[in-house]
Amino acid sequence: MEKGTLLYEGKAKKVYQTNNDDIVWIEYKDSATAFNGEKKASIAGKGRLNNEITSLLFSKLQALGIDSHFIKKLSATEQLVKKVEIIPLETVVRNFSAGSFAKRLGVEEGAKLARPIVEFYYKDDALGDPLLIEDHIEILQLANSDEVAILKEKALQVNTVLSELFKELGIRLVDFKLEFGKDENGNILLADEISPDTCRLWDDKTNEKLDKDVFRRDLGNLTDAYETILARLRRPISMYKVKVFVTLRESVLDPQGTVVKNSLHSLNYSEVSDVRIGKYMELTIDKSDRPVDEVVKDMCERLLANVVIEDYRYEIEEAVAQ
């Protein structure tokens, strides 16, 4: 495959022709832009990070049955993709409130939405990428209603897969933007990129932002955040640390708890109204074909707790073998 002439240069990528009419050569740039181009910077390494992350995510999606324009990664900053005609819509999926949604609707940032929602924005820099309702899309002939339905369905599919994938890496997929294109047969195909430039990714525990908001809001070093995402994507989860808590059921009198409560009262902790004594277990479980959640539940029901008199709960943490 040979790199041909430059077809198009955008804010983040250059697109070159190849000697195959159906395939184009993408080069990721080191530039960062935000607020519709008002804030700009050149950040060394960003092109590489977005190319690596996008390549990994598109590969994982393909492995899970979600096709895209992605063909293969060529180098640290380049990839080959199928040539598509980009539909001028940004398809946004939101799982948690953030960004323009939080601002426009006054929903506190970080609040979990009752279900994932899909929004469309008009890809038009001059207009500032405005939010569209479906009638707008139809009347502007950006896509017909069948196509809008397909975009929604595909976007939600991608969301299911990516949310789960990031969750396993200890990352919350807050929201993300997708772009779709049409191939020569008119089939709608996932295109563009999926990277911290196009996703809001928060650390599940610390809520640390690991995406372009770091740049938008000057929260620190952008490449550090993107490196974190890349490192976690590359690191295969090999085991889980599971904490199991077993206590006597609420309805069952706990003789030990009662004695301890009385003892605390005699030490003047009169505010203690109840004590339940239970067991705490730490399990290390290797990753297997069976969903870990199912495995743990099964173990609790069969052995770790006696459900006649005991309740259990557990916490599962992903871990990587050292």
Partner: peptide, 17 residues
């Protein structure tokens, strides 16, 4: 026998501990 489910119920620690 209780744990095996051959008889119903479960055993707790003596009330007096």
């Amino acid at each position: 026998l209780l744990e095996a489910g051959l008889l119903p119920g479960a055993m707790k620690r003596n009330e007096s501990l």
